[in-house]
């Protein structure tokens, strides 16, 4: 299944870099059949990134104030509307899905969003805060597991058909 891993955020802005850093780290593992992309754009302009993929995993920062910084949240696009104070990076995501649907675009049918509750996402040139930094390995682990979860097994039939 052709999969996109999309890291959103701005690496110049402290905790807002978390999605970008996770994506960068995942790219180094060179997962097969997966494109790992970093970007700072949002909403409808993101459409270009999603086209042509069957599955997408989005990684981003979130500032809801409802969870301790470093908390990893996980949801699907339809649940976005219920998330209070979402990051503007995906204010347009539900709309994006609707547009893609109406236009019958080649858009991922499966979308999973991983969002990390952040402490500081506005200090230019700032570092990741301690709790967000601490959450990064777990975030990467969970996204990796998600990547593997729906991956078809590696060519088992090849062996089965050997004479």
């Amino acid at each position: 299944m052709k999969t996109l891993v999309l890291g959103l955020g701005n690496e110049l802005l402290a905790d807002d870099a978390v999605g970008i850093l996770a994506a960068r780290s995942l790219r180094r593992t060179r997962p097969t059949g997966v494109d790992v992309v970093e970007t700072s754009v949002s909403g409808l302009a993101l459409l270009d990134f999603f086209l042509g993929y069957e599955r997408a995993i989005v990684i981003d920062a979130i500032q809801s104030g409802k969870h301790p910084p470093g908390t990893i949240l996980e949801f699907g696009p339809s649940e976005l509307r219920h998330v209070v104070a979402p990051s503007p990076h995906y204010t347009g995501l539900p709309e994006l899905v609707t547009v893609a649907d109406q236009l019958a675009l080649d858009f991922p049918r499966q979308i999973r969003i991983f969002a990390v509750e952040v402490a500081d996402s506005s200090t230019l040139g700032g570092e990741l805060s301690a709790p967000v930094r601490a959450a990064l390995p777990e975030l990467i682990r969970r996204v990796s597991a998600q990547i593997r979860a729906r991956q078809p097994p590696a060519c088992p039939s090849r062996f089965a058909t050997l004479p």
């Binding site: 959103l8 701005n10 110049l12 802005l13 700072s40 754009v41 949002s42 909403g43 409808l44 302009a45 990051s87 503007p88 990076h89 204010t91 347009g92 709309e95």
Partner: peptide, 11 residues
């Protein structure tokens, strides 16, 4: 600049 909020979606 850098708010990322997209044209059309200005909260």
């Amino acid at each position: 600049c850098a708010t990322h909020a997209l044209p059309g979606q200005m909260p």
